[in-house]
């Protein structure tokens, strides 16, 4: 559909805001550069959209990078069917609001075999419903580049990852033999079947993400803000208790309290934190004095040291 600048502005009017501080501006410029470079060099890019705060920032940057045009690639959501309900509602609302092409993929084989985080354990479940599902979706779409919102400050093996992270035809990552990456000159040449995972947020930290969300007024899933919610304590985590598929184990009771989430994934594997931070300012204030990292709430990271590297080598984002 042909659009002029004027028509586009009417459709999604940009809002005049105070200029970003130089630190966030530099990170934003770098991310936009990466988006444009990948979109220009690859035949069929896709953006992994996990609905979380990093994905929300990633999407915002993509819209900025290609303005006044549309985002020139689809968004892919790997739906394990165990996401928080509010995430799915938010996803569909955003896709419609910003006129995005959204591809949703579920590993139907895993679903048919009844693979759940409760019955198969977090490691096997993640492998089948996330890693395997992601590879299925990438193969089905024939995508040669996939944007992800991973940041180097999240975890030790991610600290080593390139901005263009090369993958073999079966989606494997070889961390010991990565392509050198100098300046902002990225090597986008690949052979048929190979692909690249591109990470525009590589150099962002968790605080940067929150400060940017605040500065740019980016909408988020409400679960990031504290509210009175029902939860169950299990394995040292507070699990949200609103999905009927959550079966209480002997001795467990549903409690209520003011909680929120620092990261969002599958609800049975994502722990809440006690918090009264019900808006952005309070979340940032809380974050600045936080003494634990955000991935502390993720069960899949705690299996063993190096478990993220292992998952990544096999194709996990």
């Amino acid at each position: 559909m042909p659009l002029s600048v004027q028509e586009t502005e009417v459709k999604n009017p940009p809002v005049s805001r105070p200029p970003l501080d130089p630190h966030l501006k530099a990170l934003e410029n770098e991310a936009i550069h990466i988006f444009r470079e990948v979109a220009a060099e690859f035949e069929k890019p896709v953006m992994l959209y996990s609905i979380g705060k990093d994905s929300s920032v990633l999407l915002h940057l993509a819209r900025k990078a290609f303005y006044p045009g549309r985002v020139p690639f689809p968004l892919l959501h790997v739906d394990t069917t165990w996401k928080f309900k509010e995430m799915i509602a938010f996803r569909d609302e955003i896709a419609q609001k910003y006129d995005l092409d959204l591809v949703v993929h579920t590993n139907q084989r895993g679903k048919a075999e009844g693979v759940t985080p409760f019955t198969h354990g977090s490691a096997l479940y993640t492998d089948i419903m996330k890693t395997e599902a992601l590879k299925q979706a990438l193969d089905a779409g024939g995508y040669d580049a996939a944007f992800g919102g991973a940041r180097r400050d999240e975890e030790a093996s991610r600290a080593k990852e390139r901005i263009y992270s090369f993958r073999t035809p079966d989606h494997k990552w070889d961390p010991r033999n990565q392509r050198p990456e100098l300046w902002n000159v990225y090597n986008g040449m690949i052979k048929k079947g190979e692909s690249v995972r591109a990470f525009p947020l590589s150099n962002w930290t968790e605080v940067d993400i929150w400060r940017y969300i605040q500065a740019e007024d980016i909408p988020l899933v409400p679960l990031y803000y504290a509210a009175e919610r029902p939860y169950v304590e299990r394995d040292g985590m507070m699990i949200l208790a609103e999905d009927p598929r959550l079966q209480l184990l002997p001795g467990e009771t549903v409690q209520r309290g003011s909680i929120r989430f620092r990261t969002l994934g599958c609800f049975p594997l994502t722990g809440a934190i006690r918090s009264t931070a019900s808006n952005l300012e309070e979340v940032i204030a809380e974050l600045e004095i936080a003494t634990v990292s955000e991935r502390q709430g993720r069960a899949i990271d705690r299996d063993q040291s190096g478990s993220m590297e292992k998952k990544k080598r096999e194709g996990y984002f």
Binding site: H23, A156, R176, Q178, G306
Partner: peptide, 27 residues
């Protein structure tokens, strides 16, 4: 700092790792 299993096993740094820290004045 040495996040890769191969690095831990061999006790050496093989690849560049990027680290982030900040003071009140700068990151």
């Amino acid at each position: 700092l040495d996040g890769l299993q191969a690095e831990r096993e061999q006790g050496i740094t093989i690849d560049v790792a990027y680290r982030y820290f900040a003071t009140d004045r700068r990151s």
